[in-house]
Design a protein around this nucleic acid. Structure first.
Length: 350
DNA sequence: AAGACGTGGAA
DNA sequence: TTTCCAAGTCT
């Protein structure tokens, strides 16, 4: 069986490319239009382990607030973290700022144009460096994301489970990468994976690579790629304390820069642990149990978060955190939004 | 090098 | 309800 051809995929892409806010269409690229490297980089960081649907609104918001890398580099940390809230993997936002500032301070405000140069930026790994080099600068680099791994595992019928198969899949992907139109090609393989060669029930009937697909030939396409078994998530428990001052200010703190929800705004509370939490109220008050609890699942554990709520006077002195009259729900990570919602309902009724 | 690191939508 | 997983990176 002959290998799939880049030409066949590019022809398909010319007709079926998704229209995305950060993308230059194949028709426009053909006449010399190139995307803004800042927008490509920003979109790639946002898209790490995150769906296109979730990214769109954040991308529009960020590019409206900060249209250039210099603008982003000059932003306040808290403003950027607040705008990233809800998107997840908050180390990306911290590295985004570091990356923008590095581009301004160390590269004269222009993005490095090579894979190796891009790799020096914080938050840019092998995938993102290749993607920006290919898409923004038309370098013939091979992008290997989850889509490409899946497509290669099927087309070449690789039955080694991930992540062990990663190197083999990367080599196979590199073999197919063309010298011509590498930017369009990179986006084309990922579009193919996202819209045709999908994880469940791939649409082989409309696939430009159907004829060359080894998995399809023997009917195992839907079983590939194989993946190592996942570990069960433990349950962790904690208590969060939500104090609202008479003037409506909430007691919050900025979480430490490292670790879970690092750099984000949150409500003070106990550690989250598999054992029963010890009480640690951040301010003296008549704490009450609003009933119910916040349930939230992180990447590696389930959280059952009990709440304590209190109304406190204007002169209340907190041992932890600070009262924020201007706190917005939207600047909170999702687990804290859940706590905020539950506490708000409980405090309305008292 | 295996685990940490978020979230929401689909099945 | 649970599981899977989506344009990965860092340590």
């Amino acid at each position: 069986m002959r290998d799939p051809s880049a030409d066949d995929l590019l022809t398909w892409y010319d007709r079926h490319a998704r229209v995305l806010p950060w993308r230059v269409s194949p028709a426009d690229r053909r006449v010399g239009v190139m995307p803004d490297p800042y927008r490509v980089w920003l979109s790639e960081i946002m898209l790490q382990q995150t769906t296109v649907a979730a990214v769109k609104a954040y991308f529009e918001r960020f590019t409206t607030l900060w249209p250039t890398v210099a603008g982003l580099a000059a932003a306040q940390d808290a403003a950027v973290m607040g705008e990233w809230a809800g998107l997840g993997y908050y180390a990306r936002a911290r590295n985004l700022l570091k990356g923008a500032r590095a581009v301004v301070a160390e590269h004269g405000g222009r993005f490095p144009e090579t894979r190796d140069g891009l790799l020096t930026l914080p938050g840019v790994g092998p995938y993102t460096a290749s993607a920006v080099a290919a898409i923004a600068f038309d370098r013939p680099e091979t992008v290997v994301d989850g889509n490409v791994e899946r497509v290669m595992a099927r087309v070449f019928r690789v039955e080694t489970p991930l992540p062990a198969a990663k190197g083999e899949l990367t080599a196979l992907a590199a073999r197919l990468t063309p010298r011509e139109r590498p930017g369009d090609y990179a986006q084309a393989v990922m579009d193919l994976g996202a819209t045709v060669c999908t994880p469940r029930s791939p649409a082989c009937g409309i696939c430009p690579w159907m004829e060359g697909c080894r998995a399809r030939a023997v009917g195992v396409q839907a079983e590939l790629p194989l993946k190592a078994a996942k570990k069960a998530k433990p349950v962790r428990f904690g208590i969060a304390y939500l104090a609202r001052r008479e003037d409506g200010a909430w007691l919050v703190e900025t979480r430490p820069d490292r670790g879970l929800l690092g750099g984000m705004t949150g409500f003070p509370g106990t550690e989250w642990d598999e054992a029963a939490p010890k009480h640690a109220p951040p301010v003296e008050a008549e704490w009450r149990d609003p009933g119910g609890e916040v349930r939230h699942t992180f990447t590696h554990f389930h959280l059952a978060l009990a709440l304590r709520v209190a109304e406190v006077p204007l002169d209340a002195m907190a041992e932890r955190g600070a009262f924020r009259p201007d706190l917005r729900r939207s600047e909170l990570p999702t687990v804290m939004r859940k706590a905020f919602d539950l506490a708000s309902r409980a405090l309305v009724q008292s």
